[in-house]
Every structure is written in C-alpha cells, then in structure tokens.
Design a protein around this nucleic acid. Structure first.
Length: 615
RNA sequence: GCCUCGGUGGCUCAGCCUGGUAGAGCGCCUGCUUGGUAAGCAGGAGGUCGCGGGUUCAAACCCCGCCCGAGGCUCCA
C-alpha cells in the first residue's frame, strides 16, 4: 500500500462522475477542517497476501502522525495514482472501509471520500516539516507463508524399505534417541532448554577460540590450538576431495550485484547477507562458494567427456548475516569456513551415481572425526516418485552398513534450487541437531549462470563433506562433552598436544627432553611439563587439557629404559590406565593411529612453563 | 530483529534487593618441599565492578541509553 499524508487547513471534495467500479454511496461531497488527509492506494501484494495486516499497519501509521500533529480529524481518500500495481477494486474498498472503521473506533472524526468516482477536490496544505509525508506499507508475510506452505511429510525408513509416517503423536516409535532428536526438531517439537551447549565452555577453557567483541557478532578469534585444529581439518578435507577427483580453486569473497545471475542467486536468500556500497558498486559478501565456481564453469568450454567435473574450494570465509539472537557459539556464526565442492553432471543418471559416492564420502568424515551421524533425506515429491527405487536402494545400503534408520522428508513441491538432498547431523549435548555435511541435487543454477555442456544445461551437485569446519569442531566437542562412558577426547590426529612428558622431579628433566625430542623427530606433537608442580598435579593438568598420552619418567624409567604411559582413551577419572612401552612402541602406536591423517607440528613452545595462556 | 536473564582480578562465582573501605576458591608470583599418576604447605601481587549518562554528600548496588553473551521466539540456501 502506498500512502500520502497531508496535514491540511481543510480538504473539500465533490464526486462528479462514476467509473465502472464506483461504490454506491450517498456521500458525494464533503469538507473537513484542520485535518490529516490520507491519500491511499491499495496494491496488488496487499490484496494477494494479507490485507488485514495492511489495514492494521496503515491505521497505526495514521494514528502515530495524527498524535504527533494533535489532530482528531482524518480524511481517508482513495487515490489510485500513487501506484502502478493496484489491487482488485473489491479488496481496495474493503481495506479503505476497514481503515475508516478502525479509526472511528479509536475516536477520530473520519471522512471517507467515495471509491471509484471522478472527484474534484481542494486542499490547503499547512506546509510545515511534518505536513507532507509518504508511507509505504507491506503486508506481514507470516500468514502468507502459512497459506502457501503445504507442509512436508516425514517418514521413518527401516531396513525393509517400509515408510512409516511420523508425526507429533507417534514420535516414540523411533527407538534411536539421536534419530528421534533429529525427527523431533524437523517436526517442530521442542524440549525447552535453559542451558548453553557445552562446546562454548570447552572452546574457551581449552584456548581454542573465543568471541571477538570488537568485530561484528559471530566473528571469532582463533588461538594457536584452535587454529591448528582448523588447519588440520582443512587439509583433511582437501585430501579427501582431491583424492576423490575434485580440482581445487579459489575465488573472490565478494561479488558485484549488478551482474544478473549473481543478483538473482543472492536475492533468493534475502536479508541474510552482508551488502555494502563501495564507490559506485553495490557488493555482497559470498554466503557460499557457489558464486565464484559457477562463474568459472560458465566461462569454460565444457565437453561431455570432462564430466563429472568437480571443483572444490575451502571458502575462508563464507558470510551470512544471521539474526542477532540466532548466533550460538560455533554452531551458528556470521563468518565460517565452508568446504564447498560443486560437481557438473551430464545427466540425472550421472548425478545420482555421484550423489551416492559423495554421500558415502560425507559419512566417512563421521568416522574420521569420531562423531555419530544421523541422516535425513529430503526429496521433492515428483522426484521421489520417479526415482523411488534408486532412493530406497541407497537407503537400504546405508542401513545395512551403519545399522541406523533414516528420516525421509517429502516436500510437496520444489521451493529451492534442489530436487533432492541429504543432510547429515550430529546431535548436541542438549539433544538438538547440528546439521552439517550435505549433498544437494541442483536443477536450477546451471541455467541461471548459463553453464552449458554443448547445448544443454547440466545437473549440479553441491557437496560439503564435513560442513563448515567451525561447525564440525562444534559437533566433535558436543559429542565429547556429552560422553558418559569415558573421558572426553579429541581424535588423536586433531589433538593439539598428542603426548606430554612429565618428569617426576627436575633430576629427570633432561631425560624427559630426550624422549620428547625423539617423539618430535617422528612428527608427534609433544611437550614437556617442566613446571614446579608435583606429579599428581601435572597429571591432572594434562588430563584437563585432554592430552591422549601422558608419559611419566623417573628413576624406574631411566633404569629400565622403558616408558610408563597413561592412555586417556582407556582411562576413567578414577582409574588411570597405565601401560609400559618403549619409546619406539609408543611412536609406532601413534603413527599407526594417525597414518591416514594430516600432520602439523606443535604450534607452542615445547616447555609447559613457557606456554602462554590466551585467556 | 523481539522477549527474558546475565556481564565483578586470568578463570568460576559471592556482594546488588536494603547505596557508605570490593570478597572467596582456582590460576599466577615468591618461599618451603625434590616429588611416582586428577588439587602438598605458607606468603604475596593482581580489580576502569561491560561502556556512557543520570539521581545522590556518596553508585558494583538505584534510573536511562548502548555494547557483549546465553536462553526463548522467529529464521536457517
């Protein structure tokens, strides 16, 4: 709705002649003194969407101004010429009448000029700063969406391929607690939580990373240990996708909104982006690596034999201007690092084959990060019906391999760029899903970005095998933080300090250093606790740092040339698991456990007494 | 973005209601202790009480605005 508001000494009108849409009325002329005149055009979107909300907002605006100006007389004047996109006359009349009625109820003197007549009018505008104002009023979109939204259906899929529709009442048929949490979340069943997720405490306590109050909310600072973990994860995903056949690229973080496909793709995601003007350009910060990779593909001369063609980029960073109240620790940020692979597929058959491979790749990351994944497939109904056999076959392979059921969402019609996707989630310490790895079948973007293989538009797959690195870490920490069966720990290859050597007294410090150096030469992250504390205290400190191997050396070890190693994985808080082994055996064990994973050296001084605290 | 709660030495928190010299534990430093698997003993240093304004003779405390965090709502390509 468009509205022009005039504070006037008087307004006078006279209806002269009917149009086709004229309302029947006796009030064909009128005059009001000391009044606020509201010229109003009701628009198509008001009509289609939510007329009642427009009425309420318009009345609110008028009253606000009337209050300011201290006037009690209001003229409601239909004025079609304010808009080129008018609503139907029927709705317009209803809206105008409603506005008149509401204002009357609120004790204003209201004069409404007749709708659909050619009218003569005289107006005397007061001419002070507030005397001429225009307002544009948008309908609330909440109710609109409700109207448009046909809800999805959710199913539990078991090994025999049976689909059991799940809803609020039968949710307990899902026995797996984690999968049930995921289903509950999807169905909008919420258990109220008043606590914060445990990873927030852990990241600070362990000197991984922290909030940066002098940036925008949701942008973090990373300390050496957290930086190490992120770098290791980055290298891990790089190796994973490159050995799978992806070609790494790097593309800009910001894009020009005057480029049509960029603008279209960006506009789909509405408010949740950083946009800014620089010079005479309007720019946006990328919220995923799609933009740059699509532009590369658009400019390539693509032959069918190149396909499936996979480009990979670690988007450091992707930016999303999430709502302020929605930012939570590492779970939702405004700047995050997203491994993002896009695969061009010749046709749907090839796309399905790729989808399956990429799905298995996503699941493998759960094993490497030592987290438990829960799977939800989402398909648009038509697509599901057409490829049902293929889908059910994939699901049954998954169930056989991982011994877990899956959730299946069927969407009545396509509303995003994808026709099918899989989301893979870790359940956090409060029973809420952290959705992370994903594969999506995109049938829209190739056309939008004019990516052509010969003369046809290929299918595009989006895949992030771990999801954002920050969220991956979040998932690991939440999983460990909620552990009851044993001590929380990071996977060995991700542990910032893998081994700590503790001399029983400073007599043995040189021996401890010798051991540490030997480990370090073998690419093991090791430090030496040279502090003045007693052994018990040093063990406790090492335990609080989640160090996987603690080597205590004293007289016995020197004499027998053997190490006493406390292995965290096999210990509990009360019972430390200790094992005697030679230095070579320890090295061998660690090398064995980390052999398929990236390595980076200890980013800290080797002596504990020299290691700074970051908080 | 909205609603609720919170922000006090490096960390965890008490004090605020009822205004009057800012507290504890851990950590840190120093000394004693030279030690054997999750907190040895003693002493000491360390605080713009988130920021800005207001009320008051006097503000960590009362009032207003803002910033930051958590929970809830809404959102989540």
């Amino acid at each position: 709705m468009k509205m022009l508001l005039i504070h006037a000494d008087y307004l006078e009108f006279e209806a002269k002649e009917k149009t086709k849409i004229a309302e029947e009325t006796d009030i064909l002329n009128g005059r009001m003194e000391e009044c606020l005149v509201a010229f109003i055009a009701v628009e198509k979107k008001d009509d289609e969407e939510n007329p009642q909300s427009v009425v309420n907002k318009a009345v609110e605006e008028i009253e606000k101004l009337a209050n300011n100006l201290k006037v009690n007389n209001i003229v409601v004047y239909p004025y079609a010429h304010l808009s080129k996109n008018l609503s139907s006359p029927k709705i317009a009349l209803e809206v105008l009448k409603d506005i008149e009625k509401k204002l009357r109820e609120n004790n204003y003197n209201v004069l409404r000029a007749p709708f659909g007549w050619y009218k003569a009018f005289k107006l005397s505008c007061k001419g002070h700063p507030l005397s001429e104002l225009s307002r544009e009023i948008y309908p609330d979109d909440e109710k609109v969406e409700d109207k448009e939204k046909i809800p999805s259906k959710f199913y539990l899929v078991k090994e025999n391929g049976e689909l059991i529709e799940i809803n609020k009442d039968n949710i307990n048929i899902i026995e797996d607690e984690e999968l049930k949490s995921l289903a509950k979340y999807e169905l909008g069943i919420k258990d109220k939580q008043e606590k914060e997720p445990v990873h927030i405490k852990i990241i600070k306590e362990k000197d991984f990373c922290d909030y940066e109050p002098s940036s925008d909310p949701g942008h973090f600072r990373w300390y050496p240990k957290g930086k190490l973990i992120r770098d290791l994860l980055a290298e891990y995903v790089y190796n994973l996708v490159v050995s799978y056949g992806a070609m790494p690229v790097e593309t800009p973080v910001m894009y020009d909104l005057s480029v049509k496909p960029i603008k279209e793709h960006a506009d789909k995601f509405g408010e949740r982006q950083y946009r800014f003007r620089q010079g005479n350009k309007e720019l946006m910060l990328r919220f995923a690596a799609c933009f740059g990779q699509f532009m590369i593909k658009k400019d390539m001369y693509l032959l069918p034999k190149y396909l499936p063609l996979r480009l990979y980029e670690l988007s450091t960073y992707s930016f999303r201007y999430e709502q302020r109240g929605e930012l939570i620790g590492l779970k939702r940020l405004r700047a995050f690092t997203m491994p993002d692979m896009h695969t061009l597929c010749l046709n749907l058959e090839q796309a399905l084959e790729e989808f399956e491979n990429q799905f298995w790749m996503c699941l493998k990351t759960g094993e490497d990060l030592n987290v438990s994944y829960n799977v939800i497939f989402r398909f648009v109904e038509d697509f599901f019906n057409e490829y049902r056999d293929w889908i059910m076959n994939l699901i049954s392979k998954y169930i056989n391999k991982y011994k877990k059921y899956v959730i299946l969402e069927i969407l009545p019609k396509r509303k995003h760029y994808w026709v099918g996707k899989v989301d893979i989630a870790v359940i956090d310490s409060l029973g809420r899903p952290i959705e992370n790895p994903t594969v999506q079948i995109d049938v829209e973007s190739a056309k939008r970005f004019n990516i052509k293989v010969k003369d046809s538009y290929p299918i595009l797959l989006h895949c992030s095998p771990t999801g954002s690195l920050e969220r991956a870490l979040c998932g690991i920490l939440e999983s460990e933080g909620k552990r009851k069966d044993k001590l929380p720990t990071l996977p060995l290859w991700l542990s910032p300090i893998q081994v700590r050597v503790i001399p029983v007294s400073d007599k043995y410090i040189n021996y401890a250093i010798k051991i540490a150096e030997k480990l370090r030469e073998n690419n093991i992250r090791v430090d030496v606790d040279d502090s003045e504390a007693r052994v018990g205290k040093k063990i406790r400190t090492a335990g609080k740092e989640w160090i996987p191997y603690i080597v205590v050396v004293g007289e016995d070890e020197v004499k027998n040339n053997i190490l006493t190693v406390t292995i965290r994985e096999k210990s509990t808080l009360k019972n430390q698991y200790k094992q005697h082994m030679t230095t070579e055996e320890l090295i061998k064990e660690i090398k064995e456990k980390t052999k398929d994973y990236p390595f980076k050296p200890l980013p800290y001084p080797m002596f504990v007494s020299k290691q700074p605290k970051f908080h």
